[in-house]
């Protein structure tokens, strides 16, 4: 917890918050990741799963956490994993500084859904992203290289982590920010309107 930062009270006074989005299929570790990073109590919406999705609690709206880095507030949004909430992915990712798509490395059965989510978002919204392969602490998991191959991404865009550990989650965030920096968007993208930039998607875009 960061006692110095109250996201609600600070809204509208300090620097405009940046938005980071965490997406992925059910059980990928989104809630864990946001909890590992957040300095404030995570506003969660986990509820008993009403459908058989292989776990008891699932996020029904989203996770919300905050982080302050050198005075700059960062809002962390974890999207719900279930397909019927897919309308939220696009809304949340519009104008985000970056996107972390998580996939559980021990659940290859979820990979095609994860790829579908990622491609849907990244084909429509101009957002830098990395793929995080969670559960790397377990004995039998896919490596990030193999997952990169499956997603058709450069290996540098896929990282391994344990989403329940804050150090590992911070490393993941570092990797994302390095990538954001490499896009050289620091002037156009992360301007005063950073995090609230206009969406760039859709049919009419030239």
């Amino acid at each position: 917890m960061n006692p110095l930062y109250d996201p609600i009270a600070s809204f509208g006074t300090g620097p405009k918050p940046l938005k980071l989005v965490v997406a992925g299929p059910v059980g990928a570790g989104k809630t864990s990741f946001v909890r590992s990073l957040s300095e404030t109590e995570v506003v969660g919406t986990d509820e008993l799963a009403t459908e058989d999705i292989g776990k008891t609690f699932t996020t029904v709206a989203m996770d919300f956490g905050t982080l302050v880095l050198d005075g700059q507030p960062i809002f962390l949004f974890g999207t719900p994993g279930q397909d019927r909430f897919d309308f939220m992915w696009e809304v949340l990712c519009e104008g985000a500084l970056g996107l972390v798509l998580l996939v559980a490395g021990d659940k290859p059965s979820e990979f095609s859904q994860a790829r579908r989510i990622l491609e849907f978002i990244t084909s429509r919204i101009s957002v830098p992203f990395i793929v995080g392969v969670t559960r790397q602490d377990l004995p039998k998991v896919w490596s990030s290289e193999d997952v990169a191959e499956y997603f058709g991404l450069p290996t540098a865009q896929v990282v391994s982590l344990n989403a329940t550990r804050s150090t590992s989650s911070i490393f993941t965030l570092i990797h994302l920010l390095e990538l954001v920096g490499a896009y050289q968007l620091s002037e156009s993208f992360v301007s005063s309107d950073a995090g609230l930039a206009e969406p760039q998607n859709g049919f009419g875009q030239q």
Binding site: S123, R124, S126, P128, A156, L161, F171, H175
Partner: peptide, 30 residues
Amino acid sequence: APIRAVEQPPKNHQPLAPSIPASAPVAVGV
């Protein structure tokens, strides 16, 4: 292939600060 609305970063992009040690869980393809 699906579009990537944001372009791929330059191959071999340069980290902005000293890169993560190789032993760290996320350091891939520096």
